[in-house]
Design a protein around this nucleic acid. Sequence first.
DNA 1: GCAATATTTTCTATAAAATAGAATAACTTG
DNA 2: CAAGTTATTCTATTTTATAGAAAATATTGC
Lengths: 107, 107
Amino acid sequence: MKLLSRQEEIVLLSIWRLGGEAYGVTIREYISKITGKYWSIGSIYVPLDRLIEKGYIDYYFKDITNRKGGRRKRYYNLSSPGMDALQEARELQNSLWQGFPDFAIKK
Amino acid sequence: MKLLSRQEEIVLLSIWRLGGEAYGVTIREYISKITGKYWSIGSIYVPLDRLIEKGYIDYYFKDITNRKGGRRKRYYNLSSPGMDALQEARELQNSLWQGFPDFAIKK
DNA sequence: GCAATATTTTCTATAAAATAGAATAACTTG
DNA sequence: CAAGTTATTCTATTTTATAGAAAATATTGC
């Protein structure tokens, strides 16, 4: 199986983190906040589409809307293969980083 | 600062792991072993070149040779910015994965 | 010395992923 | 239904990843 790319890892984890509240805008906000940098619209939606193609996530539309405008929100869920891919990524990371010095206090 | 790509992370960590023994071939062997998959020659040397350009690693030639053929081996070292980039990648990962369920026994 | 052989890196081409943001769609309110 | 707002789709460009042939350079044996 191919390794998860960085952006795939981040997007999958943000969907996991956001639980039932994961759609384009909240995902983008979360990623911007946790990484501390700017993410364009495309840099969120393009990987989302690819993750759907790969079967790592699925989605549904929630029609309840209490806010003003906007299209239907597309809510994402991790699929079972998506969870497996994350698990596998984690195991690789554990091996790779094993013993790496931890500079607890930084800056 | 831009995030490290997956392959950059892996290559940097393998140089760190191999200490004074990091050159193209040993890096490739290490990465193949730890990931359990095939890596072409280009998939090692191309990111190495880019990491040099970015200043994350530097290199020197060791002329001592006791093996049969081959060009001069190019040995790589992590630079200080390279170490910083790793540290930053790790901090992001810690945030992202915080609380992720750990399936200790798998398969 | 030099042909044969082995090892390592350089080079170049192609595919995949990341990034950017304009355009489009769709919902609410008045 | 027009105006205003929010969300996604679409498309183009840049950057990374991947592959492996070609070139370079070393040792061995005659």
